[in-house]
Design a protein around this nucleic acid. Structure first.
Length: 572
RNA sequence: GCCAGGGUAGCUCAGUGGUAGAGCAGGGGACUCAUAAGCCCUUGGUCGGGAGUUCAACUCUCCCCCCUGGCACCA
């Protein structure tokens, strides 16, 4: 069975979740649900990043201990994802004990490692003198400062700080990274992000500090590291490792999801046969897997925002190479959602609260807007007006109304049971025949194109295909005028055929749209009187089965997608 | 500055050589099963500017203008 391991960035808990966080989780959730729907064994990891000076400071400002502070804030993320129907398999926190142990193991491996070019220790200690801005929690170079020698963001002069840090010899991994990017062209999506990363690497990499002295809110370096007392791991050397530690790394069980046997590979890039490599018992490439002849394939699919692509495309693979862990399959770099032309930011005051939106309009309305209204993974612009318009048009007016009018007609003329008759030849007018042909053709096209678009993560295209079928169905209703057929007992077979075509259309749409709209598609499924769940329907079930109904009773007629009246949510 | 992407109807965008497209908004119409939704028809663009290649360019080449992203620590 194909296996699919998908992760999101873990969110830094110095504030509550905003729409950008929500977009990433919903996007990953839709991808994960698509894999589950196909029958792939799927593992979806998300969580929160809870260490670092900013959090320690925010906690202090709130008069709390860091522990209590992160406990509370991480719960706001858990609650938000629950509200949005984000179905993850594990919510991982970097304050988890097993994460501490894993980070320490990483440092031990770095300590023992030798650099690829000069064979020096991968980890080394060096005294560093620099200008440190406390607001940024970062060292600044002269170039970063404004004309008056101040941090442009915080408007304060950075302090000259002398401290001893441990450095990771990143500078020697440029060739290895370039080679990997060369032989794995789809390691980074989209292409232009890959180009950016290649340029950055070619411009030369600098060693990076991976520890922080004089900071307590973090993971202490292991005692094997001489001089490491009082240092904690740098937040990125800490945070990135969550993708492994959540799976149990360094215990071998991590390989259950991090790797896959050749026959079990799922997800993007699965067709690439040249990526298989043999691994030793530690999951290190190059040697045969202990006790088996199977080739293993790296299987991690990281979904991240474009702001952290350097960390995931350069630092992370370099750390993994140094630690002897196979690299992930792909880093999927998505765009940002903007509001009022600016990126979402607390200081700009244009944060859009996904929790409020969801409470007001429903999880599926927000999910649909995020997944359908702009191309998957690209930047998007949020406005309440566009949101309302998009949801009203597609969900309420088109799909919701089609379901509503179909169910009402079945209740009115067939006592709420699916008509057990199918007679396409009974359609008499040219208009009806053409409408019928157009509907069936659209359904056939979408049955082919929708799975393809889903698998290539062109979610907006997958949904567009499905909605084309909805549109053909609404046209078909108007062309065949079932309310007139209903008045004429002689034309009962024709009426039954029309309604069965509509019912089958709705069944298909419920399956095609389910990864994006899980709860509403399940409600639609129940409304259609169907057994089971659209999330359990495989691609074979998503092929058109136009024909006579089985006489089953439809569910109670409900408004699936209420129209949103912008005036009634004034103040929003 | 360098690298990348983009400038097409009021708005959001699709369209890589052969008589300019979609959705929404605007205008008109017929209908009434339905969530005042749906259906039909329709107004609207010198495709950022200029030059070139070609029988033919939104589409290829060159130059210019403008916007956006990246150039290591905010999803």
């Amino acid at each position: 069975m194909p296996r699919f391991y998908i992760t999101t960035a873990i969110d830094y808990v110095n504030g509550r979740p905003h729409l950008g966080h929500a977009y990433e989780k919903v996007l990953a959730d839709a991808i994960a649900r698509r894999h589950r729907q196909k029958g792939d064994a799927t593992y979806y990891l998300t969580g929160t990043d809870e260490h670092g000076q900013k959090i320690a400071r925010a906690a202090a400002a709130a008069g709390r201990t860091p522990e209590a502070f992160v406990d509370e804030l991480s719960q706001t993320f858990v609650a938000a994802w629950k509200l949005l129907d984000v179905h993850y398999d594990q919510f991982f926190r970097t304050t988890d004990r097993k994460h501490h142990l894993a980070v320490q193991e990483l440092f031990r491996r770095l300590k023992d490692g030798l650099s690829p070019k000069t064979g020096q220790p991968v980890l080394y200690e060096e005294e560093y003198i620099g200008l440190y801005c406390e607001g940024c929690e970062a060292f600044k170079t002269e170039r970063d400062l404004d004309g008056k020698g101040r941090c442009p963001e915080h408007k304060v002069k950075p302090k000259e700080v002398k401290e001893s840090n441990f450095f990771f010899r990143l500078s020697e991994y440029d060739d290895a990274l370039l080679q990997h990017l060369e032989s794995h062209p789809d390691f980074i999506w989209p292409d232009y992000r890959r180009t950016e990363v290649v340029n950055v690497i070619k411009g030369g990499l600098q060693d990076i500090s991976v520890s922080r002295p004089n900071l307590t809110w973090g993971i202490p370096l292991p005692e094997e590291i001489e001089g490491g007392e009082g240092h904690v791991a740098y937040v990125w050397a800490d945070a990135l490792l969550n993708y492994l530690s959540a799976l149990g790394w360094p215990e071998r069980k991590y390989s259950l999801w991090w790797l896959a046997k050749q026959k079990d590979v799922g997800g993007p890039g699965a067709a690439r046969q040249d990526e298989f490599q043999h691994l030793d018992g530690q999951g290190r490439p190059g040697a045969a897997w202990a006790g088996t002849k199977d080739a293993y394939y790296t299987n991690a699919f990281h979904v991240i925002g474009k702001d952290i692509s350097r960390f995931h495309c350069i630092l992370w693979p370099a750390l993994l190479l140094a630690a002897g862990v196979p690299l992930p399959r792909q880093v999927y770099v998505h765009g940002f959602i903007y509001a009022k032309g600016e990126r979402l930011s607390k200081s700009l005051g244009n944060l859009v609260d996904p929790v409020e939106l969801t409470k007001t309009f429903g999880a599926d309305a927000l999910r649909f807007y995020l997944l359908d209204s702009f191309p998957t993974g690209r930047d998007g612009e949020f406005t309440l007006e566009q949101f309302v318009e998009h949801v009203n048009t597609h969900l309420a007016n088109k799909l919701g109304n089609l379901a509503s009018r179909t169910v009402t007609l079945v209740q009115k003329y067939f006592d709420g049971k699916t008509p057990e008759e199918w007679a396409p030849d009974s359609l008499v007018s040219d208009e009806a025949k053409q409408g019928f042909g157009a509907l069936l053709a659209a359904a056939a096209t979408t049955a082919t194109e929708s799975p393809k678009a889903w698998d290539e993560i062109r979610i907006h295209e997958a949904l567009e295909h499905a909605w084309t079928v909805v549109e053909r169905a609404n046209e078909f209703v108007d062309r065949t005028k079932p309310w007139e057929l209903g008045k004429d007992p002689v034309r009962r077979a024709e009426l039954a055929t029309v309604l069965n075509a509509l019912l089958e259309t709705l069944r298909l749409v419920a399956i095609w749209a389910w990864p994006a709209l899980p709860s509403k598609c399940e409600a639609l499924w129940a409304l259609l009187g169907l057994q089971g769940n659209p999330g359990q329907q495989r691609d074979a079930d998503a092929q058109p089965r136009f024909g006579a109904g089985d006489g089953r009773a439809l569910g109670e007629s409900v408004i699936l997608f209420p129209r949103i009246d912008l005036k009634s949510v004034a103040g929003a």
